[in-house]
Design a binder for these strands. Structure first.
Lengths: 235, 235
DNA sequence: ACCGCATGTCAACGGTGTAGACCTACGGTT
DNA sequence: AACCGTAGGTCTACACCGTTGACATGCGGT
């Protein structure tokens, strides 16, 4: 009796065939796979397996694999909240920046999608969720008194900086965290001593990188520069 | 006799089987493919075809496809010249920044590799060509009198900004360049009017984006902020 | 004369994205 | 009650992919 006929293999989550498949379900499982194994670990067939469905089922809900990846970027970006905090525009944008950084650290494998997918698609055809933060920030800034063109400048400066910072921070990965010697921890001992003397010498500095502090420093510079350059918004 | 048996099919470049295959030849052909069709258009089999060789030949010169991609990023980055210009450190770095932007515009499809590949590899095991600009800039800055830790800060700030700027600039792609109406050119007419009023209103501003000017503006801000924050280098 | 090594080739394996035909169940209309 | 259109799910099949392992060839050194 007690032998349910061995239909019990699936991935960690295994609800082999509950309710119908929805777009949200697909995307959230896809996100889990990517978080766990990176983009290379993701395939339609594997996603099908996780959902306990034939891979072709996915194509009833998404037109292609690329669309699924776009969707994943979208749901991650949806978690970015834009105008919740109060205060002037600078402190509000600072909050957005910290939020974005947190998202990136929570889903490092998704960052390539975030910064790279839009390159393939002209503005107007991007997933709407991807454009939401832009619109929200434009609203925030126009409310603060900026002209629309200046608002766009600020947005571009902020997200340009943000994308760059996040990529930089994620690059500083440690190779062997248990190692106590900084050179070895970072794998820098492999570099030819003659060719990279300065870089090798930087091991201790590199090892003590503080992303959050770096972000704040960058924001300080950015906002100082922006307020100095732009016509100040009428209050 | 005179019938070379129809061995004359290949891609545009077609030197079907001249001299031996070298790493440089492989990488430069790979770059051509990527420039032409993007990263998705690149495969080992296709690269083999372009070289007039069996795809497996490639594996005598590169351990994997990922290594070829790293190599492509490397040869593009090799074209970045650091320290040729003279002047103080600010003007030298400005020149590097302009150079980097030019590289990105010349090889837009390579940019994802440039910003994304390092995420997979800890500093010490990256292709040396990838680390060269870092070391060169560190040298430039220490010569200018910076302490090594400050030099690293400057490098990080500069390339963080640069990566972000280039990604942003490449995102502003035009959908239908021949169209005269800005809304249509950018594909913005597709956006729900109610949800994205501000973004739609920005069509003319978006359409007249000037990447070079934007870069200079950003550099102004960046260097102003850096010189204000850092202890000035002893001259 | 021999060996070893660098280079190139071939066939094969297991994986991939997705087109097309098919099957089933259900809600609305007649 | 009979019908049908549609949405969701499944199956098969195709063309392609990255890469392993065995095999062929020619050259330089011993």
């Amino acid at each position: 009796m007690a032998d349910t006929p061995a239909r019990r293999t699936a991935e960690p989550h295994d609800l082999p065939d509950n309710g119908p498949v929805t777009r949200e379900l697909i995307l959230s499982r896809a996100l889990e796979i990517i978080d766990h194994d990176g983009i290379d670990g993701f395939s339609m067939r594997r996603l099908g397996k996780v959902l306990g469905r034939d891979p072709m089922t996915l194509y009833r809900h998404a037109p292609s694999k690329a669309a699924v990846l776009d969707g994943v970027a979208e749901i991650v970006l949806d978690q970015l909240t834009v105008g919740s905090a109060d205060g002037d525009w600078v402190t509000q944008l600072r909050e957005v920046a910290r939020d974005f950084r947190r998202l990136a650290l929570d889903h490092p494998h998704v960052v390539p999608l975030l910064v790279t997918r839009p390159l393939a698609t002209p503005l107007g055809l991007r997933p709407l969720g991807t454009l939401r933060p832009l619109e929200d920030i434009l609203r925030l800034l126009t409310r603060a008194g900026f002209g629309s063109s200046d608002a766009l400048q600020v947005y571009r400066a902020l997200f340009g900086f943000l994308h760059g910072h996040v990529l930089d921070e994620l690059q500083e990965r440690v190779e062997r965290p248990e190692e106590s010697d900084d050179l070895l921890r970072l794998g820098l001992h492999r570099l030819p001593i003659g060719d990279f003397p300065l870089l090798r010498g930087l091991a201790p500095v590199l090892a003590s990188y503080d992303g959050a502090a770096e972000l704040e420093r960058g924001l300080d510079i950015l906002f100082a520069g922006l307020t100095a350059t732009l016509a100040p918004p009428c209050p």
